[in-house]
Simulated assay, not measured.
Amino acid sequence: MTDISPESRAFGDAVLTARIRTAPEDFFVEELPAFEASGEGEHLLLTIEKRGMNTGFVARELARWAGVAEHAVGFAGQKDRHAVTVQRFSVQLPGREAPDLALLERDGLRVLVQARHRRKLSRGALAGNRFVLVLREVTGQRGAIESRLAQVAAHGVPNAFGEQRFGHGGGNVGKALAMFAKGARGARMGREQRAMLLSAARSALFNRALAARVADGSWNRGMEGEVWMLAGSRSVFGPEPWSEALAQRLEAFDIHPSGPLWGRGNLRSEGACRALELAALDDAESLALRDGLERAGLEQERRALRVQAEGLEWEWLDASALRLSFSLPPGSYATAVLAQLGAIADAS
């Protein structure tokens, strides 16, 4: 059992303690599709509800069911095993019909929708995720909890990478450092494992820069030399002088302050923003991670520091059970929302 990290808590002290994922049904995630199926083509697009299974396992089961190689199966995003999730998969079936779905379905796995499509489902091809979470054994004053939730709804939350990004016990950062220390030999590991470790290293640096912005209160307002990110995209602009137009766009969640996804090249931020980012990533471990990412060939990019929990609603199921529902864009984590509430133990 692990605790969701409070390192990026932005609104003050914890207002509750609770448990999450005491059962898979208490953590429901539904992918929001980015497109409609074309209705024709050599790929079968399946919307699947799964319980207690991770995405990779289901992809392998689909390959076995269809009699195809695993690379013929596509999915947009990885979903946790300890949850009930609804997500899309594609299976390439050129020139033939799909096997009977009854041979695929079982307890914990069922097909909700099937349709033909022209292309394989690619990573990131989703509009976001909708979450319905139930917190159990909640302790805390109801008024304070609801006040905190109203703050989250009004201001968004720090867009931290979740603990899933860092592997069991956060060990992937240490593994990334070991890979970097090996130099060129680190490239001999499998492509997928190497990509996972590079991602963990980059995410750790981003979270450290974000924590510094939370500490000085600038994570949701920007600062001198800020680089702004357009909501719902990876497009950035700035730095540029502060203006009423920027203030209005920031309040409307049309733009967000951004932080570094480390790589080669110069930071785009300037002035006070750049100085803060460099100071936050100036310890020995951060410098080793920065150097390793640069030598690995990654380029400087940016990620929004703030994310909106869109449509946030809450309901008390009983005196100690609280249900939350909200949507997040791709690449953002429900744990970033939960971290603003307090010490929530993950029973999975």
Results as ranks from 00 to 15, higher is better:
residue 292 G to W: 05
residue 196 M to W: 11
residue 145 I to K: 04
residue 312 L to A: 07
residue 146 E to G: 10
residue 53 M to C: 14
residue 104 L to C: 04
residue 328 L to S: 01
residue 341 L to E: 01
residue 18 A to Q: 00
residue 214 V to P: 00
residue 19 R to I: 06
residue 163 E to F: 11
residue 124 G to W: 13
residue 37 A to I: 04
residue 36 E to I: 14
residue 205 L to R: 03
residue 158 P to E: 04
residue 129 N to I: 14
residue 339 A to C: 02
residue 191 R to T: 13
residue 199 S to R: 04
residue 346 D to I: 14
residue 330 P to R: 01
residue 34 A to K: 01
residue 112 L to F: 02
residue 293 L to C: 00
residue 56 G to Q: 12
residue 269 S to F: 12
residue 54 N to M: 09
residue 295 R to W: 01
residue 270 E to L: 04
residue 3 D to C: 08
residue 42 E to T: 05
residue 25 E to M: 03
residue 185 R to C: 03
residue 144 A to K: 13
residue 250 L to A: 08
residue 158 P to I: 06
residue 211 A to W: 01
residue 209 A to M: 00
residue 181 A to S: 08
residue 5 S to L: 08
residue 318 D to V: 13
residue 106 R to A: 09
residue 210 L to T: 10
residue 139 T to C: 08
residue 118 R to C: 08
residue 185 R to F: 02
residue 155 H to F: 13
residue 78 Q to H: 07
residue 165 R to M: 00
residue 279 A to N: 03
residue 9 R to S: 12
residue 95 G to T: 02
residue 125 A to P: 11
residue 149 L to F: 13
residue 107 D to Q: 14
residue 258 S to N: 13
residue 243 S to Q: 08
residue 249 R to Q: 13
residue 193 Q to M: 15
residue 334 A to Q: 04
residue 288 A to S: 09
residue 7 E to H: 07
residue 69 A to T: 15
residue 1 M to D: 13
residue 226 E to T: 13
residue 45 L to V: 03
residue 154 A to F: 10
residue 210 L to D: 07
residue 157 V to S: 00
residue 264 R to E: 09
residue 147 S to C: 13
residue 343 A to W: 11
residue 212 A to T: 05
residue 277 E to Q: 04
residue 280 A to Q: 03
residue 21 R to N: 14
residue 195 A to E: 12
residue 145 I to Y: 08
residue 204 A to V: 05
residue 72 A to Q: 15
residue 111 V to M: 02
residue 199 S to F: 11
residue 56 G to W: 14
residue 56 G to I: 12
residue 65 W to H: 05
residue 343 A to N: 12
residue 237 F to P: 01
residue 150 A to W: 15
residue 19 R to K: 09
residue 307 V to T: 06
residue 5 S to K: 11
residue 320 S to C: 04
